[in-house]
Design a protein around this nucleic acid. Structure first.
Lengths: 190, 190, 190, 190
DNA sequence: TATGAATGAGTATTCATTCAT
DNA sequence: GATGAATGAATACTCATTCAT
């Protein structure tokens, strides 16, 4: 029954793509990605029909990885603030721990080669966080804005925070905390 | 090469670059930029030594344009909040009015073809705003963070706000105001 | 490799090749041919050692199919003209009825991937017609030309006739007849 | 004013294409064509926007060359048969003298990469011959067929004749004459 | 200075064929 | 025998930059 398609190789290609996209940008040639993954040029295209598909899959893979980190949510009784704080710190720590993944995810997010559908699918994984945000913003100055606004602010502020973490890793925890406080205030203050 | 003759042509190239970068991304070919500017392919390179230089110059040009909009600052006696509010609204309105410029500026800001030096130079123009921010954050939860953190937050939050303005232009003013309130709270609340 | 197992599969591959060559030209990939035949990519190569061999076999298969149509020859006493007329109409009708086979046969006939040997073998099947031609041309203006010349003329004129049949199928019979008359005149007139 | 586009290079590319198409078929790579023409790979594309355009232009160029040979038509008073005979011999001799051009023209004529428009344009050059054919067929067995039928027959029969010329060049004149007689009989006999 | 033809390295993708399963 | 994953050479076309005019 012929060799089955190897999940190992698929992962190797995705990892190689991540590394090369981080190092050289999204223009990194598929030939080099394949080589870095230890497969032949043509093999890449048995796993991903085109470079675009590779990019879309990688986007989902990275989003999924981040999502997985968030899996062990805090006890529900922890209160709204605590739950959001938990999500924030995981997000920020993930970005600090994996600057390459973060960078590639950001690049992919901006590229028009990642489809609307892929973005939507990537978003879905975070609907529980979206729900928390919606509740939290209900009383503050943002109460008249669409829920997605809060999500956008959270993303933007967390990214800005990570940029600073990167520069001074020593004070990672306090910076992340400061960022969250700012975000919480933005979200909930009148 | 001495200063090129015609400032008009230089501007035409920069404008054509802006349009094409907006329409096709930073990969837009220099040949098409030149054509759109009404000059010959080779002429572009008498005004800008390379595509990279064109991109760096364009970055500064766009930042400068935004800066110019902010020029007529409000009376100093207006108070800190009012002055920042003024800057915020101008920034957000500029982005809403010129989505193409905003998009190109964002793309350039992320490209590694725009040098650190260029970025720094672009930042300088906004040192007065930076000063306001520094004062405003001195009392809030961000007081221990570097001043650039506040600037980064402002940029990130304003961009997120503009994204929403773009979707529902009817409520531009209230959305912008909500964004500013969120930002001010982030900046100044304990 | 001994004789491959399944004659069914061999035929399926030949038919799939015919269809795909007709639809996409001789560049149709073997992978797609295999898929259309309902076998695996590699299986194709257990039935035909290479794409070239597939093409050569298909050429003979198609020629053979045409030959088979001509099998029930008219009674010998029918006279020379009538016998040739019979062959002509069968040929032309076959082309009209199977435009895809005709097209593929023509493409293969022009391709240098079909060997001289294959062509010769394909020709042999029509030696009885060749004999008729030889007799018919013995008295006309072509009497000094090699017999193959008459065969070439017949093929060329019949093909041209079929092209016209294709455009106006309503008058198929009269067009075919006109073509034959022209051919007969070419062959036998002084 | 920069170097002007060089007609020499254009011709060199067309000739190189002719040679390589004759030697290797229409799949001959553009890179090799360029090299054979003595220009850089990319240069080919400043003269022809794509391989398809190169093929279409070459088709017209070859048709035009053949047409040019026919230019010095015989005196009109020569009579119908003589005029057609003149055209026939020029055509056949051209094919015999330039087997490569003939082969390439035939390949291009069959390729679907040569557009309908190009074919039509190529046909136009021969409208005077078409007129002769129309007159000649008016009385014979083909009188009810469309004029293009006669043209198709002429083309097909001339091509078949050239194939035989190629094999026995010694009797070129008599073979060509025999071919014409056959054609004339096909066209005009009842 | 302005022009645009010339260059050739660089890129995504295809495909006949092989071979491990 | 049958399968289909693996291979890597091959291909049309692009583009920043140079330089002859």
């Amino acid at each position: 029954m012929a060799r089955p398609r190897s999940e190992d190789k698929r992962q190797a290609i995705l990892q190689a793509a991540t590394r090369l996209f981080a190092e050289e940008g999204l223009n990194a040639p598929t030939a080099r990605i394949a080589k870095a993954a230890g497969v032949a040029e043509g093999t890449l295209f048995t796993y991903f029909a085109s470079k675009d598909e590779l990019m879309n899959r990688l986007y989902l893979e990275l989003k999924g990885g981040l999502r997985a980190e968030m899996a062990p949510a805090p006890p529900v009784q922890a209160g709204l603030r605590e739950q959001l704080r938990h999500a924030w710190h995981i997000y920020v720590r993930w970005g600090a721990a994996h600057p390459d993944l973060r960078q590639v995810l950001a690049q992919l997010g901006l590229s028009d080669r990642v489809s609307e559908a892929t973005r939507a699918e990537g978003m879905q994984a975070f609907c529980d966080v979206a729900l928390l945000l919606q509740t939290a913003m209900a009383q503050g100055g943002l109460r008249r804005q669409p829920p997605a606004f809060a999500a956008a602010l959270m993303g933007a502020m967390a990214e800005a925070t990570m940029d600073f973490l990167a520069r001074e890793p020593a004070q990672a925890d306090s910076t992340s905390e400061a960022g969250f406080t700012a975000f919480w205030n933005a979200l909930t203050q009148g």
